[in-house]
Design a protein around this nucleic acid. Structure first.
Lengths: 238, 238
DNA sequence: GAAGGGAATTGGTCTTGACCAAGTTGACAG
DNA sequence: CTGTCAACTTGGTCAAGACCAATTCCCTTC
């Protein structure tokens, strides 16, 4: 990482800086390595620390870097592919890193969830919080919502998931969008509040209606969602 | 939007500010309305403009706001749902807002694309650029890559897409991840370079191998990707 | 009335400098 | 040797101010 001169600028400085850093990352650094601290880096490139940080933020957003207060900025490994394929005959629970149930509660349904479940706002739902890791790093946290009236009384969280696991599903409706981590999610994902996350909302449909809704938030910086639905496609084609 | 007092802060100021603004957005503003300019807003909340901008940036990331230089900050409509369901028997081209072909070229394959197509880096591919709009606003731009050797010589872009439209596909492999808009994409999407985008990469598989690869970038602030695969699921279940 | 050319307005970029908070390190006491 | 705590390092937050660039708008000019 030489003290490169930032060329003339029709484009903003942080943009060139980002490019320069990106190239340096490819050629002079290895995964896990710690970069010089922000004050030194800024001085080295002859920019203000705020400008340097703007470039680093973009690179972090792209999953190239990971910054930790008190520690430093490290080079990230390539994003991990997380399989979120729809599976008609089973509850998600892909091979490899599986969901780990954290806790269960029985709150009033948030408005958005109630709507997706076809309930009135405030109706009681059973909520299960679970998280998912890859390479021993948390990558996702999920809330599973099931209408309380659909469940036998006193049903345990594990049993609930097992019940739904076996339920005959008609289909799933799924959306993916960008969000920013709420305080609770951020804590579980080892990120700061507001960190970019991919929010996957799924409705599990049966003949009777919506059996459950899950809202999963994936760390946008460390993972790539894969939909390997060639299996289903093959079945349809054959 | 009263001059609210920012309460005590275990959490950072911009976080409270974001919350306050978010609530004001819900209660005191309507879609399309222009907010006061940044300098006034900052003064009104008693913070530096940089802090105010940090809050606005988060709200823009969440799709609540839209900022335009020289114009102002406006309240965004809810995100538009864009259907990106896998379709086994046809090339994507959903009802409603369709893809519009922009241009075609025949460059050397970028390394990543070549790998996905099973080609050597630098092999010739045919690339078609097309964009997609919703409510008269651009929401996505896509590059379609097809190996040149798979095509009849002199094939026009439209014909290429039509050919693939009819091709018998074995399946699709698809990934979704967060990215930042490159200069070209940003221009087509009417955003600044570096704007957050959802990148959907799809491999179209035939019995012979990979027939094509598409890389579609969706504006992360204005759209939500929907995978309404209940149709396929229903077929499988029946 | 239409066309052209400045202002004025607004968000975008950049700087300097300060302080806060999380994490690490190492000296010191037990 | 071990536990504790203080100093230090690092990224995170915040401020105040300056200038740049895209857009709009109005005034002038033809």
């Amino acid at each position: 990482m030489a003290t490169t001169q930032l060329e003339a600028l029709p484009e903003p400085k942080y943009w060139h800086l980002k490019t320069a850093l990106s190239e340096a990352l490819d050629s002079e650094f290895t995964v896990g390595q710690i970069l010089p601290n922000e004050r030194d880096l800024a001085a080295r490139y002859g920019v203000a620390r705020a400008t340097l940080r703007q470039a680093l933020e973009q690179l972090e957003l792209e999953g190239r870097l990971q910054r930790r207060r008190g520690v430093g900025t490290t080079v990230s490994p390539p994003r991990v592919g997380v399989d979120v394929s729809p599976a008609p005959d089973r509850w998600p629970g892909e091979p490899g890193d599986a969901w780990q149930t954290e806790s269960a509660s029985c709150p009033a349904a948030p408005a958005q969830i109630a709507q997706l479940l076809g309930l009135a706002a405030g109706d009681s739902v059973h909520a299960v919080r679970r998280t998912r890791a890859a390479h021993s790093q948390p990558v996702a946290t999920e809330l599973v919502y099931v209408p309380t009236r659909e469940l036998p009384a006193g049903q345990e969280a594990e049993a609930i998931l097992a019940t739904l696991h076996l339920r005959d599903l008609k289909g799933q409706e799924r959306t993916v969008e960008l969000g920013s981590a709420k305080a609770e999610d951020a804590r579980l994902l080892d990120r700061l509040p507001g960190a970019p996350v991919l929010v996957v909302t799924t409705r599990y449909l049966t003949e009777q209606g919506t059996a459950a809704v899950t809202v999963a938030t994936y760390r946008a910086d460390t993972c790539r969602l894969t939909f390997g639905d060639s299996g289903a496609m093959r079945l349809l084609a054959g």
